[in-house]
């Protein structure tokens, strides 16, 4: 799933300094836990997104370590208080090392 397009929604993209933006993210991923077995009784190897970060101009402002109990298509909702105008970069890191990435522009007046 290299061509995954995450869904991202900001309640506003334009805030005064000290203002709060609510961020919602949803990404499509199977989140195979590594606990399940296939028809032949062999363990299906774990393949999950293990880390999520939200960066503003390259500086991490929110991050989460994700474990195997998180269900498929993980959804995150959180609030940020951005200090400066710039680019928000959302990154999900897969167990296989691949990345899912998306960006959003915000303005802080």
């Amino acid at each position: 799933m290299a061509d995954v397009k995450p869904r991202i929604k900001l309640d506003k993209k334009d805030v005064a300094k000290g203002g709060i933006i609510e961020v919602k993210t949803l990404v499509s991923h199977t989140m195979e836990s590594g606990q399940r077995k296939d028809k032949d009784g062999k363990v299906i190897p774990r393949k999950i997104l293990n880390k999520f970060t939200c960066d503003l101009n390259g500086k991490t402002i929110f991050s989460a370590d994700i474990e195997s109990a998180v269900s498929a298509n993980p959804y995150f909702q959180f609030k940020i208080k951005p200090e400066e105008t710039g680019t928000l970069t959302f990154t999900w890191i897969d167990d296989d090392g691949s990345k899912i990435q998306a960006t959003e522009q915000i303005k802080v007046a």
Binding site: K5, R7, K9, K24, L26, S28, N73, Y75
Partner: peptide, 11 residues
């Protein structure tokens, strides 16, 4: 519509 994970399939 944002929270609804069914929209991943709609997309």
């Amino acid at each position: 519509d944002f929270n609804n994970p069914g929209f991943l399939a709609v997309e």
